[in-house]
Design a protein around this nucleic acid. Structure first.
Lengths: 188, 188
DNA sequence: ACTTGCATGTAACTTGTTACATGATTTA
DNA sequence: TAAATCATGTAACAAGTTACATGCAAGT
């Protein structure tokens, strides 16, 4: 059982879901493709952590809804008490910064601007999630609490990223902005 | 050529390094083990992106220093101009928050406290990096600039994470703090 | 005596991505 | 008419982790 499997198990524990549902819901926090999720769900059913039933739909394709079993819930509880592993981030931008000195102002600005767009999109997404739920802050113990602080986690992270982008864009001179003095110095 | 390979190539472009050096330097930004790095460096040498030479050492084991080739530099330049991919984060904590309602206050607090320690450690690390380099802010174009904003990236991210932890710890009631009224309500 | 750091590598395995495969309905 | 959404799955491949393997020097 890997971390993704536990995550899926936990989501099913909250509400019965199809693989497709789970994929969409988990995407913003853990980038997993359907080709990874479907086999995991099958294996978890074999291990008796999940049960499934087919739901016929008229307009859309039929779907397989998964629910958690008693055994699944026990395993889930154990996981929640086990040691928490450190987050893993792999960001191409970090690698590129090691050799940023190889690029011109324009290239560097383009890169950071692209990342800025990414964060703005994420902020939009998380804010729309917040807007589509009860106004009052949920209290600990309710299922809404976990979801609320999860959204806050994404939001605060994206805002920090945006701030960084703006700081950096402020530090890279726009081309054509170089002063006469600097040009003279760099031409030596 | 994967992202990690480009990252290593970029680091070698800055200064000649051994696989061991690269592993240590890249760790805080991209968690790669030596068992992944060594074969990548070998393959990049085969492709004529890197060249290597053995350095004998008396007190420590000998080491293989890699330098970038002309061809390597060209490939690196191309990469810097190509499309930047989105960052990928896999955080067990995010998955756990989906089913936080399964745990008690104590378990939840422990989890967040553990994460808080993680961020405090990272902040310490990045601040020590800042302290061990020239006081004045580097300007765009110098190799120090990229490294400076990379450290800032890690720092701002870790600070945002810490802030989130503190917000959440403030929202989870400490056990024994529950009011009489709440106890009566929850006992129904 | 034991562990940590330095230093390099391979083998077996797990995890994650891309591509293949199907097919109806809705929207542009 | 083309693309996107819904919906499930498999196969081949790439990326990343864990374990195995060696060995010396310095510190605890």
């Amino acid at each position: 059982m890997n971390l993704l499997s536990y995550g899926l198990l936990g989501m099913v524990a909250r509400e019965e879901s199809s693989g497709y549902d789970l994929m969409l819901k988990i995407q913003p926090y853990w980038q997993a493709k359907h080709s990874q999720i479907y086999p995991l769900l099958s294996r978890m059913e074999e291990k008796n952590l999940l049960s499934s039933r087919w739901i016929q739909q008229s307009d859309k394709p039929d779907k397989k809804m998964y629910g958690i079993t008693e055994h699944g819930r026990e395993i889930l509880q154990e996981w929640m008490l086990s040691h928490l592993s450190a987050p893993v981030t792999r960001d191409e931008l970090s690698l590129r910064l090691f050799c940023l000195w190889l690029t011109e102002e324009e290239g560097a600005r383009r890169m950071v601007a692209e990342r800025k767009r990414h964060f703005l999109e994420r902020i939009d997404y998380f804010e729309s999630l917040l807007a589509s739920r009860p106004q009052h802050t949920p209290t600990f113990g309710s299922p809404e609490f976990g979801e609320f602080i999860l959204i806050q986690k994404g939001l605060m992270n994206a805002r920090a990223g945006l701030e960084w982008c703006q700081m950096v864009l402020g530090m890279i001179p726009r081309e054509g902005t170089t002063s006469l003095q600097e040009k003279l110095v760099s031409s030596i």
